[in-house]
C-alpha cells in the first residue's frame, strides 16, 4: 500500500507541479505585479503601493470596462442559453435528419475563434458585408449601418457574433440533459392530458433545472474571460465602446507595456471571477446533493 501511494504521487507530480507553477503561482504573481509600476520607458518594476489601483479607479475607462463587461457577459449568456435551449428542444423531436442537423449546428463551435471573428468582421462590413446587403434588400434598414464603427451598435454586434459562435455549446449540454429526462414521466403526463407546453413546464424543466443553472453560471465564467472575438472584431473600440477586462488587460500590458496597470485590471477581473466561481460551487454542490452524489 505504501509503495502504491508513492507511485500515485509520482504519477500526479508532473500535472500538479505544472499547474502550480503555470496557473496558481501566476494568480499570486498578478497581485504582486499590481503593486509595481512598469512602463515602456522604465521597464524595471518599481513599488507603487496602491497607486495603480487609485489611478485605474479614477480613470473613466475603468467604469466603461466594468459596464461593458456586464453588458457583454449577460447579453451573450442570456441569448446563448435561450437559443441553445430552444435548439436543443427542436433537435429532441422525432424528426428526420436530426443527426445531420446536429452536426451542422455544431459547426460554429468548432470554427476557430479568430476565423469566426474575421468572418463576422467581413459580414459586418458597411459596403461589402452580407448583413447590410440583406437588410437593405429586404427593406429592414434604409441606409448602411457601420455595425462595428458606430459606438451605439458595436457592442450589440460583437454580442451577436459571439452568440452565433457559442450557442452550439449550450445546445449540446441541454440536448444531453433532455435525452436523460425520464420518458415514463412524460408519458404519464401525456396520459393525464397535458399538452406539449404543460409537459415542458411541469415535467421537463423541473427535471433539468440543475443542468440549466450550472450551465448558465459556467457560460458566465467562460464569456467573461473570452478575448478572441472582441479583439479581432473591434480591439475594444470604437474608443472604448467594446473594451472588456481581457481586451483591456492585453492592450495595457502588451500594447503599452504597462504591466503593473494591466495586472491591476487583472486583479479586478479575478475578484469578479471569484464571485462567479463561488456561485458555481454553490449551484454545482446543490445539484450534486439533490442527485445524491457526494
Amino acid at each position: 500500500m505504501r509503495k502504491d501511494r508513492r507511485l500515485h504521487w509520482l504519477l500526479l507530480a508532473p500535472a500538479l507541479i505544472l499547474m502550480a507553477v503555470m496557473l496558481y503561482y501566476p494568480m499570486f504573481g498578478t497581485v504582486y505585479e499590481s503593486f509595481h509600476e512598469t512602463s515602456f520607458l522604465s521597464p524595471d518594476p518599481k513599488f507603487a503601493g496602491l497607486a495603480l489601483y487609485r489611478r485605474i479607479v479614477a480613470d473613466r475607462t475603468f467604469a466603461e470596462v466594468v459596464v461593458n463587461s456586464i453588458v457583454w457577459t449577460f447579453g451573450v449568456v442570456l441569448l446563448q442559453n435561450i437559443l441553445g435551449f430552444l435548439t436543443a428542444l427542436l433537435l429532441n423531436q422525432n424528426l428526420p435528419m436530426q443527426g445531420v442537423l446536429r452536426a451542422i449546428v455544431l459547426l460554429p463551435f468548432i470554427l476557430p475563434g479568430v476565423v469566426a471573428a474575421i468572418l463576422w468582421r467581413f459580414m459586418y462590413d458597411p459596403q461589402l458585408g452580407l448583413v447590410n446587403s440583406l437588410l437593405l434588400q429586404t427593406g429592414l434598414i434604409e441606409n448602411s449601418v457601420a455595425w462595428l464603427a458606430d459606438s451605439r451598435m458595436a457592442m450589440a454586434s460583437v454580442i451577436v457574433a459571439a452568440v452565433w459562435k457559442g450557442f452550439p455549446f449550450s445546445m449540446l449540454i441541454y440536448l444531453a440533459a433532455l435525452q436523460n429526462v425520464d420518458q415514463s414521466q412524460i408519458e404519464a403526463a401525456t396520459l393525464d392530458g397535458a399538452g406539449p407546453t404543460r409537459r415542458l413546464l411541469d415535467v421537463t424543466l423541473p427535471a433539468i433545472r440543475d443542468v440549466i443553472v450550472v450551465n448558465v453560471v459556467l457560460t458566465l465564467i467562460l464569456t467573461f474571460n473570452y478575448f478572441d472575438i472582441i479583439w479581432v472584431l473591434t480591439r475594444g473600440g470604437p474608443q472604448s465602446a467594446t473594451h472588456i477586462f481581457p481586451t483591456k488587460i492585453y492592450e495595457t500590458g502588451f500594447g503599452q507595456f504597462r504591466f503593473g496597470e494591466a495586472a491591476t485590471y487583472g486583479v479586478f477581473s479575478i475578484l469578479v471571477l471569484a464571485v462567479l466561481v463561488a456561485l458555481y460551487a454553490i449551484v454545482q454542490g446543490r445539484a450534486n446533493r439533490r442527485r445524491g452524489v457526494a
Binding site: Y24, G29, E33
Partner: peptide
C-alpha cells in the same frame, strides 16, 4: 482537495495570469 484545485484551475482567466507567465 486536489481534485477541487483542478476544477478551480479550469476557470482561471488567461488574460489575468498572462503577465506573470510572460515574465517567467
Amino acid at each position: 482537495a486536489l481534485v477541487g484545485l483542478v476544477v478551480l484551475a479550469q476557470m482561471f482567466p488567461h488574460s489575468a495570469i498572462i503577465i506573470p507567465i510572460y515574465k517567467m
